[in-house]
């Protein structure tokens, strides 16, 4: 296909073709297991439907609560849930757990490419396939939930930029959960707890502006809100102007902090690697 292109160059990008190949492989795996993904997607669409019913009932006759109209909340919830579903790719996390548990991690360590970049490539591929599924499901989502246009063209621009960083943050969070494999051998219950707590604190079930003050403070001190609330609130125009710029700055700060955390965790993990069995 790309004859003569992938030859030995020595720059920092010399392993890029390998990482792209991993992304491609992940996409193919996602296609192999598309029925599973579609089933999971159905669960999310059901969740969007239920949230719509619940919030419509909660609003009742009131047109506006805390300065937010029902229609805006419904658009927020629809986009937030679809987005956070696409970010919660636990497949790569459980892949990492299986690598450690079965001792296959030795093979990935023995590659002439870094281990963490390899895992990030897996995450990029996994997330990309989820985004593709979510995009394909948009017509159905519009039918079941509520979709609306962005508040303005500026809001749309902010949303796209912020969404990009949001994916970065959630990939780093997923990687940290995955690296937990070096300390415990099971992801099951912890993975579910992580999904639930992060979804809640990200504002996927209740928009952050409805949180009581203390809980909102807690949520704002954690990275999860930057994965969901920040971009979706920009889409709806609740977060605009200098506030939006500041929120993007906070996202970048989280990326730097979490990347540092990954570095630290990986160096400790490598130090204590004991390949299981044998």
């Amino acid at each position: 296909m790309n004859a003569g292109q992938a030859t030995c160059s020595d720059g920092p990008l010399r392993n890029l073709p390998a990482y792209l190949q991993i992304v491609r492989g992940r996409l193919r795996i996602a296609m192999t297991y598309r029925q599973n993904a579609l089933f999971m997607l159905a669960v999310v669409i059901l969740q969007i439907f239920i949230l719509r019913k619940v919030w419509t009932a909660l609003y009742g006759e009131a047109g506006v609560v805390n300065g937010v109209a029902l229609a805006d909340v419904l658009v927020y919830l629809t986009i937030a849930n679809l987005q956070s579903w696409a970010m919660q790719d636990l497949a790569v996390g459980s892949y990492l757990y299986s690598l450690v548990r079965e001792g296959r991690i030795a093979f990935d360590i023995l590659r002439p490419a870094g281990f963490v970049p390899q895992m990030l490539a897996h995450l990029v591929g996994g997330t990309l396939s989820m985004v593709l599924f979510a995009t394909a499901a948009l017509p159905l989502v519009a039918l079941v939930g509520t979709l609306g246009p962005p508040a303005s063209s500026a809001a749309f621009g902010y949303w796209l930029l912020s969404l990009f960083f949001a994916f970065g943050i959630s990939m780093l969070l997923n990687l940290i959960v995955g690296l937990g494999a070096f300390w415990t051998t099971e992801i099951g219950a912890f993975g579910m707890l992580f999904t639930l707590v992060s979804q809640f604190l990200a504002g996927a079930l209740i928009p952050l502006y409805f949180f009581p003050d203390w809980l909102r403070t807690v949520a704002e001190l954690l990275p999860f809100q930057a994965t969901t609330f920040t971009p979706v609130a920009m889409y709806g125009g609740q977060l605009a102007g200098s506030e939006a710029v500041q929120a993007i700055g906070i996202q970048l700060l989280w990326i730097v902090l979490l990347a540092g955390a990954v570095r630290l965790i990986w160096s400790r993990a490598l130090h204590r690697i004991v390949v299981q069995g044998g």
């Binding site: 390998a18 792209l20 192999t32």
Partner: peptide, 19 residues
């Protein structure tokens, strides 16, 4: 989960072999 040949393709790129 992938065809055997896909593993080889990845290794070809991983070890930076020419086509």
């Amino acid at each position: 989960d992938l065809p055997l040949v896909d593993s080889f393709t990845l290794l070809g790129k991983m070890y930076r072999m020419s086509e």
